[in-house]
């Protein structure tokens, strides 16, 4: 247990000593929403164990109020408290394993926290992000809207779904049974920042030499429709050879399909192995 109030819980997976190297960065996983540190479909556990096998020390932890971690006593907004807690995880690894460089990663809000923390802490040298902030491009708008403009069925579906949404919003009812009155969970409504802000942030990280691995699932179909859209949506960022984008429109947000899970794990393994080669292991 660690963190500002000693109430954060994490699981450290030791690096395989056969492949560990002193200069390999350690890896920190960040919660996706309120899904605890094992990750949806236990994906974080699988990635962590595979990276550990390659020589990377990994830490999966729960932000305050999530999983096994206690709630915070202050009311700092999540985008601040989460960064503080991610940095506390890095401090822990620095203290107990001598880590001086870090890879941060996660799905959805975990991808967001990884990005914010990297902006704050120059020890971050790599980010792997599943469904991170993404932005439409002119080509996306053409490919997404043009077929719908000429399809009467698509118009009808669009109107119908909006009508249903309105009805749902007006439907009376008491508090949902899923209401969590036990203790405070962090509140975070995911709103993409202006594209120019993220471009500026990514440019800063790229100039610092940070390497990126981005996985985009089909759930982002309202934002992304082609493989190199991520890079093209940030034309002012010089990623050099430090960006890998895996566009998987057939995958869902939590990567339910076992084949897609393996694709994610293998992609991150290969990316990490390329930028930070382990001893006696090929990328």
């Amino acid at each position: 247990m660690f963190g500002p109030e000693g109430s954060l819980v994490g699981i450290l997976t030791e690096a395989n000593p056969e492949h560990a190297a002193a200069d390999l960065p350690s890896v920190v996983f960040l919660n996706s929403g309120i899904v605890h540190r094992v990750g949806a479909n236990r994906l974080y556990v699988k990635i962590a164990r595979r990276l550990a096998e390659r020589g990377f020390t990994t830490l999966r932890f729960d932000h305050a109020g999530i999983g096994d971690s206690g709630p915070r006593r202050d009311d700092r907004p999540f985008n601040e408290s989460a960064v503080e807690e991610a940095r506390a995880a890095m401090e822990l690894l620095a203290r107990v394993r001598g880590s001086s460089r870090f890879i941060l990663g996660g799905l959805c809000s975990g991808a967001d926290v990884a990005y914010w923390t990297a902006l704050e802490d120059t020890r971050v040298v790599g980010l792997f992000q599943l469904d991170p902030f993404v932005y439409r491009t002119p080509r996306f708008l053409l490919s997404y809207y043009l077929p719908r403009l000429v399809s009467p069925a698509a118009w009808w579906r669009s109107l119908s779904s909006r009508g249903r949404h309105l009805l749902n919003g007006l439907r009376p009812g008491g508090a949902p049974e899923t209401a969590d009155t036990g203790w405070a969970a962090p509140e975070y409504t995911r709103i993409f920042p202006p594209r120019s802000d993220v471009a500026k942030g990514l440019a800063t990280l790229a100039e610092r030499g940070v390497a990126f691995h981005v996985f985009i699932s089909g759930t982002m179909f309202e934002y992304v429709s082609y493989a190199d859209q991520y890079e093209r949506s940030f034309p002012e960022v010089d990623f050099g050879d430090r960006l890998v984008v895996d566009f998987a429109p057939e995958a869902d947000h939590t990567v339910t399909d076992l084949g897609h899970q393996e694709r994610v794990i293998r992609g991150i393994e290969r990316w990490a192995g390329t930028h930070w080669p382990s001893q006696n292991v090929s990328p």
Partner: peptide, 11 residues
């Protein structure tokens, strides 16, 4: 639930 919502049936 694609976004991993928790369920807490209080009763």
């Amino acid at each position: 639930d694609e976004f991993g919502a928790a369920l807490i049936p209080q009763g």
